[in-house]
């Protein structure tokens, strides 16, 4: 790819990278920093990259690493606030007294179909943004940045069992949101 094209593509993808970083870090300034670093790394490593199709994937991979570094650094500098267990949120309402589902979970179908659609990811982003910050922080470390549960618990100084509870709650909320905003709209699975 010629230089002007490459630069133009970088600039075009910048807002996407920013939104991604803000979602993970929940802080405009830190997000700005990691995106800046990513653009710089992309420019320096340009020859390792070929083809416009994977530019976004490549940039997101760099960005993920920068975000993980930032999270590690941040948790060393100032311990993150506890992911309190105060809100006794559970999902009992989904079950009958005898432990059976109130309502059978719906068939979401084959993921491939949805995952090809950028509209699906618009809804996903909306649902991720709707998560409370303490849940979102742990959940994105686990599912998007693909960090090990052990490390997340250590970085955030929370107990492993608390970690599991938080991840569970985030999944349940996300599931609820996607069910409502994507799968019930008749655009997802049959």
């Amino acid at each position: 790819m010629a230089d002007p094209d490459f630069n133009a593509e970088l600039n075009r993808l910048r807002p996407t990278l920013m939104r991604f970083a803000v979602l993970q870090l929940r802080d405009e300034q830190s997000a700005e920093d990691v995106v800046q670093d990513t653009m710089l790394a992309a420019l320096q490593g340009r020859e390792k990259f070929s083809g416009r199709a994977q530019l976004k994937t490549w940039l997101v991979a760099i960005l993920k690493n920068k975000i993980v570094d930032r999270i590690r650094q941040r948790s060393r500098e100032a311990p993150l606030p506890q992911v309190g267990d105060s809100e006794a949120e559970d999902f009992d309402a989904l079950f009958q007294a005898d432990g059976h589902w109130q309502e059978k979970p719906s068939n979401w179908g084959n993921p491939e179909a949805a995952l090809q659609q950028s509209r699906f990811y618009d809804v996903m982003e909306l649902c991720m943004n709707a998560l409370p910050e303490n849940l979102a922080r742990v959940f994105t470390m686990r599912e998007i940045l693909e960090m090990e549960t052990e490390e997340i618990c250590k970085e955030l100084a929370i107990s492993t069992s608390n970690c599991w509870v938080v991840l569970y709650r985030a999944r349940m909320r996300l599931r609820e949101c996607l069910q409502l905003k994507w799968f019930s709209e008749g655009v997802g699975a049959e």
Binding site: P111, A114, L115, S118, M124, E125, E143, E146, R171, R175
Partner: peptide
């Protein structure tokens, strides 16, 4: 519960590819 398990797998696959195409 099989449906639920499939939904959880779906979530994981979807998030690994975030922010999508």
């Amino acid at each position: 519960c099989r449906r639920f398990e499939a939904q959880m797998d779906f979530l994981r696959q979807a998030l690994r590819r975030f922010p999508g195409p």
